[in-house]
Amino acid sequence: GFTKEQQRLGIPKDPRQWTETHVRDWVMWAVNEFSLKGVDFQKFCMNGAALCALGKDCFLELAPDFVGDILWEHLEILQKE
C-alpha cells in the first residue's frame, strides 16, 4: 500500500503537510496502483494543504470521471489516519 511508499520517500502521514513533490509522488503512485487513465499531472501542481483545501467538486475537476473519485476517496482515508 501507500504506507510503504510514504516510508520509502519520506512523505508525511498527514497530506496537509505534503510538498508539491509529495503530491506528485502520491498521484503517480495512485495512477500505477489503481491503473488510472488520463491523469494530467500538471493539474496537481500544488502542495498538500492546497490540495486538501480544494473541496470535492474542485478536486474532481482535476481528473477524469471515476479517476477523480478514486483519488478523492484515497486522499480522504489518508487525512483520517
Rank of each mutant, 00 (worst) to 15 (best):
E61K: 15
A63F: 14
L60P: 03
L78S: 04
E20L: 07
P64T: 07
F34G: 04
A49P: 08
E61W: 01
L54P: 02
G38H: 14
E61T: 14
T3N: 09
Q6A: 14
A53R: 12
A30L: 07
F2Q: 04
G68R: 05
Q6L: 13
T19R: 07
K37F: 07
A63G: 06
W18H: 00
M46G: 03
R16P: 03
D65P: 15
H74A: 09
A53P: 00
I77M: 13
V39C: 07
L54Y: 06
A53G: 13
N47F: 00
T3F: 12
D25F: 09
N47P: 14
P64R: 03
L51G: 00
I11Q: 05
Q7P: 06
D40H: 07
A63Y: 06
Q17I: 09
L51H: 02
W72V: 01
T3W: 12
G10S: 11
T21V: 12
D25C: 13
V27Y: 00
L71A: 00
K13E: 10
E76C: 10
G1D: 15
L60I: 09
T19Y: 03
R8G: 09
V23P: 00
A63R: 01
T19I: 02
F34N: 06
T19S: 11
P64E: 07
P15F: 00
C58V: 14
K43F: 04
S35F: 05
D57L: 07
M28E: 14
G48T: 02
H22N: 14
Q7N: 13
D65S: 14
G10Q: 14
L9G: 07
W29H: 04
E33S: 09
Q6D: 06
A49S: 13
M46K: 05
K37I: 11
Q7Y: 09
W29R: 04
V27L: 13
K43D: 07
L62N: 04
A63S: 09
M46E: 00
L54F: 05
C52T: 12
N32V: 09
V31A: 14
F34D: 03
W29C: 05
M28W: 09
K4A: 08
N47E: 08
Q17E: 15
D57H: 11
I11G: 03
A53K: 13
T19E: 08
I11L: 13
G48R: 01
C45A: 15
V67W: 04
F34L: 06
L51M: 09
K43M: 05
P64L: 01
V67C: 12
P64W: 00
F41N: 12
W29D: 02
